[in-house]
Computed example of a mutant assay.
Amino acid sequence: MAVKLTDRPIEKLREEVIDQLIMNYSHGQISLEAFERRLDIANQSDDHQTLAVQVEDLTLTVDESYTETKNETFSARYTPGDTVEQEQITNILSSNKRGGIWDVPKELKCFSLLGNMVIDLTQARFTHPTVRINLLSVLSDDTIYVPDNVNVILRTSNVLGSTDTTLDGKSDPAAPTVIIEGRCILASTSVKMKRTVKQRFIDFAEQLKTMLN
């Protein structure tokens, strides 16, 4: 006997609805406009019936191939390798950006004084399950971009400064963890993702659609 709809965990139902939306869009069953409209509702609503309605007219259901592709795409894993344990980035009266494809050390010490520093981890390779970023930002404007499939722990303190966090990812015990800690003195530090969860799903749907064509 099936569990009553309203008794089901809302996050589990939301995940299933989004998966079915992606499945049907990637197979050409609904338009991009309909997919994005229903995806917005699925991401924002906490009503069981509203979620269920988004897929009630869709015939395609998730199969094993979809599940395997999704796991490969969304699951962030660290790959043990020969990477330095500690690295330091010093930025004084200048602009400094670290990004692209690079191996992240176990500990990254960042000192920024009267400058602008960007640490971009979105394409970085994680060789440790836990990465620590130690910040000392003084009279600076710094930004840290984190991937949308890693865990992030923020432990910063501010002295006449500010830390702006824009994260909407979910915790995954198997994913790498980035711990950001330190102090902002008369400085501004932002921790954010380059793409939203919605964009993440759209990108995956487009990836599947390309694979099927």
Rank of each mutant, 00 (worst) to 15 (best):
E107L: 11
E181S: 14
E72R: 01
D164H: 06
I92H: 00
T163L: 07
N71K: 14
T73A: 10
T189F: 04
N149S: 08
P176G: 08
Y145D: 02
V104A: 12
T156I: 12
I92E: 01
F111N: 12
P173A: 10
F126K: 13
D148M: 02
I179T: 13
T166I: 09
N158G: 03
G161I: 06
D82F: 10
W102T: 08
K198P: 05
L135T: 13
K97C: 02
T122L: 01
T163E: 10
N151M: 02
N96M: 08
H128D: 11
I185L: 07
L139A: 08
K192G: 03
K70Q: 14
V178C: 04
T196N: 04
N134W: 11
V146R: 00
M117A: 14
D148T: 01
V118W: 00
P173K: 11
G100D: 05
G99F: 00
L93W: 12
P147S: 07
L114R: 08
L135D: 12
H128N: 15
N116S: 15
T73H: 12
D142I: 02
A124D: 05
G182K: 06
E87H: 13
V152Y: 02
V197N: 02
S94T: 07
T79I: 14
R183I: 15
I179E: 11
D168W: 01
T143K: 14
L108A: 10
H128T: 14
T189G: 00
D103V: 11
S157C: 07
V197H: 02
E85G: 05
T177M: 06
G115R: 01
K198D: 06
V191K: 03
R98M: 06
T196V: 07
I119M: 08
D141F: 07
E72H: 03
